[in-house]
Design a protein around this nucleic acid. Structure first.
Length: 465
RNA sequence: CGGGGAGUGGCGCAGCGGUAGCGCACCUGCUUUGGGGGCAGGCGGUCGGGGGUUCGAAUCCCCCCUCCCCGACCA
């Protein structure tokens, strides 16, 4: 196998850049920090998006769309929020050749503009809960961009909800975390995650509590893949979102949540499953689940390959037919491998003479000769196993990367190369350094702490992207 | 903003006073095709910008700009 990529062990960040480029996922835009998502990368995003969208709707939220431009004054209405986002705002000061009376910011997130509207939409307890989601791009002027992981503009979904009580809002924030994020990450992306609560100083700007899904990458670093926030009544008070309860009486402020997951998930996919030969895609988000390759255009090989790809497509699989024999077979194999297609079916004259084709799995490099009649079944089994193997491998790796520690020094040492599990009481208010941060807090039994001051919490320390 | 480095065909780089080169990619043709094939021919650059030194500047000097890497911030 020709080495096309910088090996992970040699230089992981460079390996990442190589994969993004060679698998044709994305490239830099002309403005620093911007990203061009190329067809292969975008197709992955669309599949991921569809999965998340389905779960969001299942949780009762409806899609809507709010403006890209937000009056600058809106951002300033919630004190923590403006403090958190000011440094990374893109601000438009001119329009139509004139200086604007009030500058508008390009949304870094949409709490402010959405809550402005919510104040009008919510009047009665009958309007609650209000469950809204939007798919959009947002802009945060990043100092150190990295394709998919941290770009100045990125695509995401952001959910925003209003509830009558704190308990209901909390339950909904946790429901999204579990049913939408954790479930998609685990059962669709095959990425094992740590689910927990962010310490107070790592909360979303303006939130009472932030819950997070932290993925563990091949190099032992953590990546925040999705967050769900309890906003309390902070924005409700800043924007005047009130309702009258069934009992009547004075207007009350609603209790809110917001939650988001972005194109960063693609970065997680790359860094969690990729190997020295490229991407390895879980079948559910593979733009092509199977590629049928014409090894050599001899006799009826091309016809047989075309028939085969049609049969697989008819069975509901996403299939790509590669009959571009002008390019060498080795080159094409390498390219599909870089792109991470889970299963390849190779149709060549030698095998075909015996009524066989070769089925190769990207994960585990399993190769088998299969009679033409059994290809569909063999491919389905291979896809099933591909999914399982990816999860098993990644889960094992996360377990190996996670170290139980009993002192802060031990934890910091372990967090230099992986994840340290340590008592929160040993970490609280201590300086960490070395790029190590508290990724999340859990209860001793792995549950999610519902209050910031729960006793006996466990902290997970790691370096992060 | 602090510390380091780099700007030369699409990409990666060499050249460091004497007419702009290499690898990859791309185009044409032949040959090949079971893991990035081979051969031949070809397209493509006012060497980041401005000023200066010199008979002569990609190369030396001055100013400016941009980008990358390491930190602080971050979905």
């Amino acid at each position: 196998m020709a080495k096309v990529l910088t090996p992970q062990a040699e230089d992981f960040p460079r390996w990442y850049q190589d994969v993004v480029a060679k698998a044709d996922l994305a490239e830099n835009g002309p403005v620093r920090g911007t990203m061009v998502i190329k067809p292969w990368g975008y197709a992955i995003w669309e599949l991921l998006q569809a999965e998340i969208d389905r779960r969001i709707k299942q949780a009762g939220a409806k899609n809507a769309y709010f403006p890209l431009f937000i009056p600058e004054s809106f951002l300033k209405k919630e004190a923590q929020h403006v403090e958190g986002f000011s440094p990374e705002l893109a601000v438009v000061t001119h329009g139509g050749g004139e200086e604007l009376a009030e500058p508008v910011v390009v949304r870094p997130t949409s709490e402010t503009v959405i809550n402005h509207l919510f104040a009008k939409w919510v009047q009665s307890h009958r309007d609650l809960p209000l469950l809204i989601n939007q798919w959009a791009n947002v802009v945060r002027w990043e100092l150190r961009p990295r394709l998919f992981l941290r770009t100045s503009e990125f695509l995401w979904q952001e959910g925003h909800t209003c509830h009558a009580t704190r308990d209901e809002a909390q339950a909904y924030a946790l429901r999204i975390l579990a049913d939408v994020y954790a479930d998609t990450m685990y059962s669709v992306l095959g990425v094992p995650i740590l689910v927990g609560r962010k310490p107070e100083d790592e909360k979303f700007a303006g939130a009472d509590a932030t819950y997070t899904c932290e993925g563990i990458m091949v190099d032992g670093k953590a990546l925040q893949m999705g967050t769900s926030h309890e906003l309390g009544q902070n924005f409700a008070k800043a924007f005047g979102i009130t309702f009258q309860s069934a009992e009547g009486g004075a207007a009350e402020h609603v209790w809110q949540t917001s939650w988001g997951a972005s194109t960063r998930l693609i970065g997680a996919l790359i860094m969690c499953h990729g190997d020295d030969d490229g991407l390895r895609l879980p079948p559910l988000v593979a733009p092509a689940q199977v590629v049928v390759l014409v090894v050599r255009d001899e006799g009826d090989v091309a016809g047989a390959a075309a028939d085969l790809s049609r049969r697989l497509a008819d069975a509901g699989l996403r299939v790509e037919l590669d009959d571009k024999v002008a390019t060498s077979f080795g080159r094409r194999s390498t390219d599909w491998e870089l792109k991470g297609v889970p299963v390849r079916v190779e149709v060549g004259p030698r095998d075909l003479a015996e009524g066989l084709v070769t089925v190769k799995r990207r994960v585990g490099r399993v190769v088998e000769q299969v009679p033409l009649a059994n290809v569909l079944e063999a491919v389905c089994v291979a896809l099933e196993l591909a999914e399982q193997d990816l999860v098993t491998e990644a889960t094992l790796r996360r377990e190996q990367a996670t170290v139980e520690t009993s002192t802060l020094d031990e934890a910091l040492e372990a967090a230099r190369t992986g994840v340290a599990r340590v008592s929160w009481d040993l970490v609280r208010d201590q300086p960490l350094g070395g790029g190590v941060t508290v990724r999340c807090l859990q209860r001793p039994d792995g549950g999610i702490p519902l209050a910031a001051d729960e006793p006996d919490m466990v902290a997970f320390l790691a370096r992060a992207y």
